[in-house]
Write a protein that binds this DNA or RNA. Structure first.
Length: 386
DNA sequence: AAAACGGGGCA
DNA sequence: TGCCCAGTTTT
């Protein structure tokens, strides 16, 4: 049995969270928020959403913008395919004269899958759809006591969630119902220690009745992350500009800028001597102490940094950028590398206006003793090796 | 069906 | 330190 939507919507009308994309019906704003919120927390999105909207106020402005401007605005948000697809979809929407008004039409746009199509259809167009995200999966798995593990149970959970459309109230307020499920999952029906006592559906929850709410939804075990190693080359000229390179349009960090370097290979860290043939230019490269570490979904990346100064023409595929602009454009993994040049372990992302970067004392070029993987540390911080 | 694809925050 | 987050695309 599906619990009554009236009880959830009554709770939502009293306790709904206030967020910048709520209230308006503008499909552009709803769409933008949904894309930014893919695998990204509300807290992380809010300031970036305002800033993005400030810079690209409507779909026409986004469609007219060059990719470089969109990439710079997205830098640090992750999953850069989202930005590429967003840009392409904006151009498609302008070309066809506006947003598609139903789920199937939305689903055909790049970067819009089953979830986002349902969310925009329900919230912006009042269409009868139930978007199934992580929150809805969790709420549904608990309400119906679905014990099969994710991701295998995904299809079954989606069918159960869609069953709420049998209630007339859900068909009348599909956008509110969807967001009520999000809010319930985010504030009460949380992954750990759900606040069942406060839940408007607690009397209808099968998992709670069985006392298994804390262990649902079950998850299949995940694969371990491999380690990869890279060595990068930071070239600066006399004005403090940095030599950057554009990554290929698809794949990891696709279309984003990077500090030129070796490929990221398994098993073995690079020595400077070994990496030198892959430097962007010939120069007096000095290997800095320390390793920048960055965790991706599927691997752990460990990078070292060599530095040099030269004022030369940018080689093919590379370009010079003022330090401040480079910092703003680079994805987080590359900013961590930059922190090595800026003075090491304590360096922070928001470490103020940087003039010419401070050079560290050079370490001997010798293959450092660090041939074994350094102890894992919290994803991303810059670490010093002794 | 499985893997690729970022980054930050929190118990 | 592992898990989670308003998922989508490619293989």
């Amino acid at each position: 049995m599906h619990p009554p939507a009236s009880e959830l919507l009554g709770w939502y009308d009293r306790h709904r969270r206030v967020m910048p994309w709520r209230g308006a019906r503008d499909p552009y704003r709803i769409w933008l928020s949904e894309v930014m919120l893919q695998q990204t927390t509300v807290a992380a999105v809010e300031p970036r959403y305002r800033r993005f909207l400030d810079r690209f106020p409507d779909v026409e402005a986004l469609a007219a913008a060059p990719w470089e401007a969109v990439a710079a605005e997205w830098a640090g948000l992750g999953y850069y395919a989202r930005a590429r697809n967003l840009h392409a979809a904006a151009r498609a929407v302008v070309a066809r004269g506006g947003f598609p008004g139903d789920e199937a039409g939305l689903r055909a746009l790049p970067g819009i899958g089953a979830y986002t199509a349902a969310a925009v259809a329900a919230i912006a167009f009042n269409q009868p759809a139930v978007p199934v995200d992580g929150n809805v999966e969790r709420v549904t798995a608990r309400v119906f006591d679905v014990r099969d593990p994710l991701p295998g149970s995904r299809a079954r959970l989606a069918v159960l969630a869609r069953g709420f459309l049998d209630q007339a109230l859900v068909r009348e307020r599909p956008g509110d119902f969807a967001q009520a499920l999000f809010d319930l999952g985010a504030t009460l029906c949380t992954p750990r220690r759900p606040a069942c006592a406060l839940c408007p559906w607690n009397a209808h929850c099968a998992a709670r009745a069985a006392g298994v709410q804390d262990s649902l939804p079950a998850k299949a075990p995940k694969a371990a992350r491999a380690q990869r190693f890279g060595l990068h080359f930071l070239l600066r000229d006399r004005e403090g500009r940095m030599l950057l390179r554009q990554r290929p349009p698809s794949g990891l960090l696709g279309g984003m800028a990077e500090i030129p370097g070796t490929p990221w290979r398994l098993e073995t860290p690079w020595t400077l001597a070994e990496a030198l043939p892959q430097a962007p230019v010939a120069a007096a490269w000095r290997l800095l102490p320390g390793t920048a570490q960055h965790g991706f979904t599927h691997m752990e990346l460990l990078m070292r940094l060599a530095v040099a100064e030269a004022s030369v023409a940018a080689p093919p595929g590379c370009f010079w950028l003022p330090a401040e602009e480079a910092r703003a454009t680079l994805p987080t993994a590359m900013r961590r590398l930059l922190a090595l040049a800026e003075g090491g372990a304590g360096a922070r992302d928001d470490a103020g206006a940087n003039g010419p970067l401070l050079a560290e004392p050079a370490s001997p070029v010798a293959p450092s003793g660090e041939t074994t993987a350094p102890a894992a540390r919290r994803g991303g911080r810059t670490r010093r090796t002794a």
